[in-house]
């Protein structure tokens, strides 16, 4: 995107003048400017506060000197934090992975010190074997994908979704597995909106190695709070049960309270004579009324004879 390169690079996406370098430069400049502003503001505010409070306990001249010393010190600390904020932010983004890795390494060291080889082998075999159980494997993989898509979304925002002049990215909040993939909540910074993101939904799906991405607003009263659904599977082809049968008896319910239905016997066309239809047709009806065959005698077979002539009535439930 040449218009952001600041150098009029006609090759557009070339490595020497590409979008990535420009964005990083903008982020770098933003960080330096923010640090400078934070230093000045913090110094002034801390100095004023210190002078105001200290003047109650000491000579105002001493209070002024104390403020002049304390203000820049605190301002410098804030400057450092703001200046290295891009690094801290990256560490924050990778906190789950870093924490998991540290827990795994130090946990294993502690475990190895506390147990002997046989126990360690049994535990490792049990943990490894649990991954052979499909539900366990699916759960673990779903959590891994949640971590994965948060990074991929961040890449999307940094690479092809232009945010604002300072290059700040949206807040990528919690991610959790869904039956079709993952659901991630994000909070937009100024410069982005739902329509803009929806136009990039296909690109986000590609970046997340998913089939489709659906972006919707979470709260009607807040346009910045969005939900990104990453779809990897289709669930609308499944059969859904309402679960109501779990609330009633499984079987054996007495049917004394149900009405016995008398089934008509005229179930085939030759069984229904023409006069019977005419008799059932109301005189005022213009269209063909529903067939309401007069209740005929209920079919009550008295005997059933098999091919060899044997009466098998007792073997059949009518």
């Amino acid at each position: 995107m040449p218009k952001f390169s600041g150098r009029g690079n006609r090759r557009g996406f070339s490595r020497s003048g590409g979008t990535v370098t420009v964005l990083e430069t903008r982020v770098h400049r933003s960080s330096a400017r923010n640090a400078r502003v934070a230093f000045i503001l913090t110094t002034i505010v801390i100095a004023l506060l210190t002078m105001t409070i200290a003047s109650d306990y000491m000579n105002p001249v001493l209070a002024l000197l104390l403020a002049a010393g304390l203000g820049p010190i605190v301002g410098a600390l804030v400057w450092v934090v703001v200046r290295i904020w891009p690094v801290l932010r990256v560490l924050w983004w990778w906190t789950p992975e870093i924490t998991s890795a540290l827990a795994l390494v130090y946990g294993w060291l502690w475990f190895a010190d506390a147990t002997d080889l046989v126990v360690r082998l049994i535990v490792v075999a049990a943990l490894g074997g649990s991954f052979a159980i499909p539900p366990v494997r699916r759960r673990v993989w779903a959590v891994v994908l949640c971590l994965f898509v948060r990074h991929r979304l961040r890449v999307c925002f940094a690479q092809f979704i232009i945010a604002n002049q300072s290059g700040t990215l949206p807040f990528i909040l919690m991610a959790r597995p869904t039956p079709v993939g993952e659901r991630v909540w994000i909070y937009l910074r100024p410069g982005l909106d739902l329509t803009y993101l929806q136009a990039s939904a296909e690109k986000i799906a590609v970046a997340c190695s998913a089939a489709q991405t659906v972006i919707e607003r979470v709260n009607p009263s807040n346009a910045a709070f969005l939900r990104v659904d990453i779809k990897r599977r289709e669930v609308l082809t499944a059969t859904v049960k309402p679960g109501l049968t779990d609330l009633v008896g499984a079987d054996g319910t007495p049917i004394d309270d149900t009405t016995a239905v008398i089934a008509p016997s005229a179930l085939d066309l030759p069984d229904v004579a023409d006069p019977a239809v005419k008799a059932a047709k109301p005189a005022t009806t213009r269209t063909v009324p529903p067939a309401r065959p007069a209740p005929g005698p209920v079919f009550q077979p008295t005997s059933v004879t098999s091919a060899d002539g044997e009466d098998v009535s007792d073997l059949i439930d009518f």
């Binding site: 079709v180 659904d229 669930v235």
Partner: peptide, 10 residues
């Protein structure tokens, strides 16, 4: 009243 699931399985 539960009547089914949406395309996200919810």
């Amino acid at each position: 009243m539960f009547i089914g699931i949406d395309e996200f399985g919810q």
